[in-house]
Design a protein around this nucleic acid. Structure first.
Lengths: 159, 159
DNA sequence: TTGCTTCCTGAGCGGTTTGCCCAGGAGAAT
DNA sequence: ATTCTCCTGGGCAAACCGCTCAGGAAGCAA
């Protein structure tokens, strides 16, 4: 994975405010050569600095307006099994192994509360899960965004 | 926000496996008319079904390989203040109001453990924060992805 | 200083894609 | 039957893309 510099960050910020701008438009707006923008974008793509396109898809637009987090405690023996089973549930959109209260932090989306109930039961019933705790997301105070980081990066002379 | 159907999901899945495919290439691959793909993409963009472009940026590529979650309990009076202050910290990439143990779930990224320590202190010191709990992400078992949801959507005749 | 490397720039080229238009037809709903 | 929506196939000019090349600026090492 390539480490992004200030120029990359500027390009990404410009793309953020107009995700469908052409390379020519970006170059003009950022006062760079078209070649530069093109080369940077290609490098960012190929080096894996950009994640999957579907990260941009809003689950709500797919009919899943509800979001929740489950904290799971796993048994030492069957811990790996749990992750393997849970990964297969489509409504589970993210699984993280963490320190602290639980062993696994799981993000799920659901169509409605009944659906959420069904999914949490699925997760709880997975092998190796010994304790769970569910938090429903009431409001996205600040949706996921790295804008602040990008903006800071643009002013940095170097890391 | 427009509700996506099976055709939209198919387009998004194709984009996922080749994020830089042209509209013509997508149309050919999906056996659709170019006009259809073009119209769908435009509608998805304009209806807000797609989030910001920078959601695709890997924080690690920006120099922030560490990720952590903080659960915050807020005082009833100054709860709003806390969110306003915390939102300004660039390393805070997501803030969610939740039910359960805490009132706020905060996702942060950091350059290293020392940096993480600094940021958590910043958050803890915010007005209205009465109790915190931090979990460091050890491993991304399953990075954020709605692929499963998209795939299911393609087989649905309708919701 | 000299050389080496890396990166940005401006220019050019052909082939492709885009955005837009239109007319026709299939399917669902009224 | 009529209306509405959507997909399709065709066509057009303009714009863009991917690629190449030569020149120059900046950084680094010897």
């Amino acid at each position: 994975m390539r480490s992004l510099d200030a120029t990359d960050a500027r390009i990404l910020l410009a793309l953020d405010s107009d995700p469908d701008a052409t390379v020519v438009a970006l170059a003009e707006r950022l006062s760079m050569s078209r070649n530069t923008v093109q080369a940077r974008l290609r490098r960012m793509r190929e080096s894996g600095s950009l994640g999957a396109y579907s990260r941009r898809v809003e689950p709500a637009a797919l009919g899943y307006p509800l979001m929740a987090f489950m904290t799971l405690s796993l048994s030492q023996r069957e811990g790996d099994l749990a992750a393997q089973q849970i990964v297969r549930i489509p409504e589970v959109v993210e699984i993280l192994a963490t320190t602290g209260d639980g062993d696994l932090l799981v993000r799920i989306v659901a169509k409605d509360t009944a659906d959420l109930y069904r999914i949490t039961n699925l997760v709880v019933a997975s092998a190796g899960v010994v304790r769970t705790s569910t938090s429903i997301v009431l409001h996205e105070v600040a949706p996921h965004s790295v804008d602040g980081l990008l903006r800071r990066h643009t002013t940095d002379a170097r890391h």
